[in-house]
Amino acid sequence: MLVGGLLMVAAACLTIYNLHEDSVAASASSKVLQSLVEERNKNMTSAADSDLPTGISGEIDEENTIDPDTPMPTILVDGTAYIGTILIPALGLELPVADDWDYTQMKISPCRYSGSAYRGDMVVCAHNYTSHFGPIRHLQPGDEVIFVDALGREFHYKVEKVETLGPFGVHEMVASEWELSLFTCTLGGKARVTVRCSRTQE
């Protein structure tokens, strides 16, 4: 009986821990988002006056066409490089996207897993916190997803399908024909909910 009670207490503690982690992640990403958007707006303003924005790596394309092989420009926030923000209106989510992924960074924001928005093969991963990609499993075909890069250029996508890949589906994840893929763990943690999107003309 005592052991059973202890296990139930452990379950309660883990639940509290998860909720706390979720709330910390929400606050961290919102802080980064604010700085990122401010910095991006500042750079866009200065870019309108001069040639290259300060504090930003990359080039402004004067002809509004992007070389697919151009590395995605980044903005540094607290020493971490971010390639832009992702907006999912159907879920009321707007999140910063880090340039590269690791487990520490995923506690703060979604991260680019592979590819490039310019090349049309970007894959973004995030934790399944309710404030991050947890709700993406509810997305429906036709829902809009917008990625805004560090130079303020918008890339509009629509959800084509939501599928589940296995934990070893790296090849399926990155070598697909989809122009944008978002993924996170299922609640069980074993598989990956993957949202496949195609680019639209705004």
Binding site: M8, L14, C125, A126, H127, T184, C185, T186
Partner: peptide, 15 residues
């Protein structure tokens, strides 16, 4: 392997 992007919810059920 794809990154582990899930919180530890399943141990809650097990426990």
């Amino acid at each position: 392997k794809l990154p582990q992007t899930g919180q530890l919810w399943y141990p809650v059920c097990i426990l």
